[in-house]
Design a protein around this nucleic acid. Structure first.
Length: 487
RNA sequence: GGUGGCGUGGCCGAACGGUGAGGCAACGGAUUGCAAAUCCGUGUAACCCGGUUCGACUCCGGGCGCCACCUCCA
């Protein structure tokens, strides 16, 4: 069955047909590293993490490239503002690249904590100045850009298809653009490809045919994506707030340079709101990933995000995160039960058969959901139905291969692709002392219970619960599981 | 003002022109020393007004509300 993608470029859901059979080249806009990452970044990068993992699970050979913007992103519109990173670095009195390094490491550590697979590689704007200059030269040679005082601007009027991605027409763009009477641009829609640093204190600067300067924000992505994925490649992803102007400009640059058609499929993730309000750095209500992970497991944040389709906004609330925590627990515990049951053999025949059937149906339905524009909310609903069916079958005595089959479906979909399982017993290596102590306390409690010393046995249960260890009593004896890795 | 999107139970959130997924919470029962977990069962939903249709949450039109982009942000 083919994978269908809602293509922002055509505004249609289309069958995914790769440029090269069996391979996927995907470029995703990474962060401008001038602050810690927030849950908006999490939504975007979890989205593309799942998409990439699904392609890989579907036997595609994926080349996933993501950029790190470390120069050229301006604080203001109309190409008149400061470089974001230089401005921030000035206030901290450090070299811009030191500033970049700090937040890049912060970003990597957040991504790792969220279980996001490393792209095949990251690319940085400052490491591709030559490629950017070369692409600008090609655009100039094709007659779609012009130089003024060491600045190079893209000539929008010379490129009729400008607006093809965002659906904007020329008149609207002119009307919407900020009027700047003293501008050296021929047209207010024109945007900078290269900015002159002559006579400024700009630290990050490179020699170019137009004098010393630095690249505009948009050119890095078109130059790097075409370098590593080719002039025509499969997928370009990013947050929808970048659809215009950033992605629109990328298309214009790559195509006008004659490099190819650029990305054939565009995927845009929607935004995060907080308690129904827009979240943004500029509004000061951004919720940092590091802060979220103080209170909740990474798996819970992933579940929370993936229960909404990537194309729709997510509303971040404490209630939503608490619900996700509980959901992760439920699914994780059922998987543990299935794995334990799978080591036994036989079991109740009818229960085994029912479980086998539930597992294979869930597998097929989850696959169909993921193939349909990566519909993670539906895939998750299918997997939760399998959880209920599994618990029922286990209660009726299912064991062995049937339990193994159900566990396998959960591990592959919920674990490997969606990444919402975890925090269960056994995670986190220590010297085994915790295990031995917990086993000892459980044994002690069992003896107390045999003597009907309920006060003391409940005390042990409560204390262990506070440490994140949950006790389960059953007729066969008691077991414990670790609910949280820490806290 | 322009463009795109959205309005579903207590909260979150899907699909579908014809029985309205799933998660969390709530209630009753089983189980338990009491719990927890689990199982069984229950309840409550489609912003408003028109239209198309045998039939609309689903399609069309109008209204109201919200969000995003148009200006830096995933």
């Amino acid at each position: 069955m083919p994978i269908m993608i809602q293509n922002s470029l055509t505004r249609k859901k289309e069958e995914f047909v790769p440029v090269e059979p069996g391979r996927v080249g995907i470029y995703v806009c990474g962060p401008t590293v001038y602050g810690h990452s927030h849950v908006g970044h999490a939504k975007s990068y979890v989205t593309f993490d799942v998409i990439v993992k699904w392609f890989r699970a579907s036997a595609f050979d994926v080349l996933y490239v993501q950029n790190i913007t470390d120069v050229g992103h301006l604080t203001d519109d109309a190409d008149e503002g400061d470089d974001k990173i230089e401005k921030a670095a000035r206030s901290g009195r450090v070299h811009p690249l030191e500033y970049v390094d700090t937040y890049m490491r912060s970003y990597f550590s957040d991504m790792e904590a969220l279980g996001i697979a490393h792209p095949n590689f990251y690319v940085r704007a400052t490491q591709h100045i030559i490629e950017q200059i070369e692409q600008i030269k090609r655009i100039l040679a094709a007659g779609h850009a012009y130089e003024v005082n060491g600045n190079v601007y893209f000539d929008v009027s010379s490129w009729p298809e400008y607006g093809c991605l965002s659906g904007r027409r020329a008149e609207e763009l002119i009307e919407g653009a900020r009027v700047d009477v003293r501008s050296e641009k021929k047209d207010p829609r024109d945007f900078a490809l290269w900015k002159s640093a002559e006579g400024t204190g700009h630290i990050m600067r490179w020699p170019s045919p137009w004098g010393e300067g630095y690249p505009g924000w948009h050119i890095e992505c078109s130059a790097m994506a075409t370098k590593y994925l080719g002039g025509t490649f499969d997928i370009h992803g990013g947050g929808m707030e970048n659809k215009f102007p950033h992605h629109e400009c990328e298309i214009a640059q790559a195509r006008s340079a004659g490099d190819g058609d650029f990305a054939r499929y565009w995927i845009h993730n929607n935004m995060i709101q907080v308690d129904g309000q827009k979240m943004g750095k500029s509004l000061g209500n951004a919720i940092l990933i590091k802060d979220v992970l103080q209170d909740y497991r990474a798996q819970a944040l992933r579940l929370f995000l993936l229960q909404t389709h990537y194309s729709r906004p997510s509303n971040y609330t404490k209630e939503g995160m608490a619900a996700a925590e509980a959901g992760v627990d439920r699914m994780t515990q059922t998987l543990a039960r299935l794995e334990e049951a799978s080591t036994s053999t036989d079991g109740h025949a009818a229960a085994n058969e029912a479980l086998f059937r539930a597992a294979s149906e869930a597998d097929a339905r989850a696959k169909a959901a993921m193939d349909d524009d990566f519909n993670t909310p539906v895939a998750l609903s299918v997997l939760f139905e399998l959880v209920t069916a599994s618990n029922r079958a286990l209660a009726e005595g299912a064991l062995g291969e049937a339990a193994g089959a159900a566990a396998d479906v959960l591990r592959r979909h919920a674990g490997d692709v969606l990444g919402v399982l975890g925090g269960e017993n056994g995670e986190g290596a220590d010297d085994g002392l915790t295990e031995r102590l917990a086993d000892f306390l459980l044994d002690l409690r069992s003896r107390l219970r045999d003597q009907k010393q309920w006060d003391l046995s409940d005390y042990i249960r409560d204390q262990l619960a506070e440490m994140g260890i949950e006790i389960h009593d059953s007729p066969d004896g008691s077991t414990w599981t670790r609910i949280r890795e820490s806290s």
